[in-house]
């Protein structure tokens, strides 16, 4: 095979370059569209707030100013710290336990039998109903918030780990066996790397669920953090401040999850990188 396959190789590279070029130009216009979309949204909010459609619906500009006030007086940053602490601890624990359980269920049939139905029920059911109970048992401190995060984040992380292992390409596994890979090598060199994008996606969904858990815990019982900020400003009819707190936490959650998605593509999906 000394004859080089020049034409074919050049063709392949050209095609790849062409693809990259078209996505690069559309990338800029996507940014423009997003900007337009955000501006339109804020404008609509401003107008609706000025009409006003409801006394409790302040215009966008007032919410922005309220945001400035609660940042300046330090209540928002402090509340954020209060909220993020249980979130980080809870997500960390749920990740460690969830990935081990998920991968275990994917690899071993007895674990699959025992675990999967439980997590399926947990994921489909409104686990939030348990949060008041947790708060009554564990008090209104950190433990209750961490547990709230875990019960909401764990099922999706574990189930994604399980599905990820189950979805590993059978032909890659056969390849590993045909080249005499041991079970250990199959797990560490083929199954886990092939499963890691989906495991990471589970982590992203888990964090998203964790935000819900911690905010619910704060809104329902535990009067600290962002939830408390929301409740407090509502109770004294400081609606602009309340909206600012809500918008901040929702945007923060969305940006965190969005960033994780970017990281996911950069780390695990070389084939998608140029289309990102």
């Amino acid at each position: 095979m000394s004859v080089q396959t020049n034409s074919q190789i050049a063709g392949g590279v050209d095609a790849a370059r062409e693809g990259a070029a078209t996505t690069a130009t559309s990338g800029e216009s996507i940014l423009l569209w997003r900007l337009a979309s955000i501006v339109l949204f804020c404008l609509a909010w401003e107008i609706a707030g000025r009409i006003p459609i409801n006394v409790a619906f302040p215009p966008f500009s007032e919410v922005v100013m309220a945001f400035g006030r609660i940042v300046a007086d330090g209540t928002l940053p402090a509340a954020f710290l209060d909220t993020l602490q249980p979130l980080v601890i809870g997500v960390f624990l749920a990740t460690a336990v969830g990935i081990v359980m998920g991968v275990g269920m994917g690899l071993r049939e007895e674990l699959e039998w025992a675990g999967v139905p439980v997590f399926v029920v947990m994921q489909a059911a409104p686990m939030a109903a348990l949060i008041p109970l947790i708060t009554f048992i564990y008090g209104i401190g950190l433990t209750a918030k961490v547990l709230s995060v875990i019960i909401l984040a764990l099922p999706v992380i574990a189930l994604n780990g399980y599905k990820a292992v189950r979805n590993v390409s059978p032909s890659l596994r056969a390849m590993c066996r045909s080249f005499l890979g041991s079970r250990r090598q199959e797990i560490f060199k083929v199954i886990l790397p092939d499963a890691s994008p989906m495991i990471f996606a589970g982590l992203r969904l888990g964090i998203s669920a964790g935000f819900v858990g911690v905010i619910l815990a704060e809104l329902l019982i535990t009067p600290t953090g962002i939830g408390d900020l929301i409740t407090y400003h509502r109770s004294i009819a400081n609606y602009s401040e309340m909206y600012a707190a809500i918008a901040t936490i929702i945007l923060f959650a969305a940006i965190t999850v969005g960033l994780l998605e970017r990281i996911e593509i950069a780390l695990f999906r070389p084939e998608k990188k140029e289309h990102a």
């Binding site: 619910l216 962002i226 309340m242």
Partner: peptide, 11 residues
Amino acid sequence: VSAPLSALVPV
């Protein structure tokens, strides 16, 4: 679709 919409319930 991925935001903690529970935070909107007070509104």
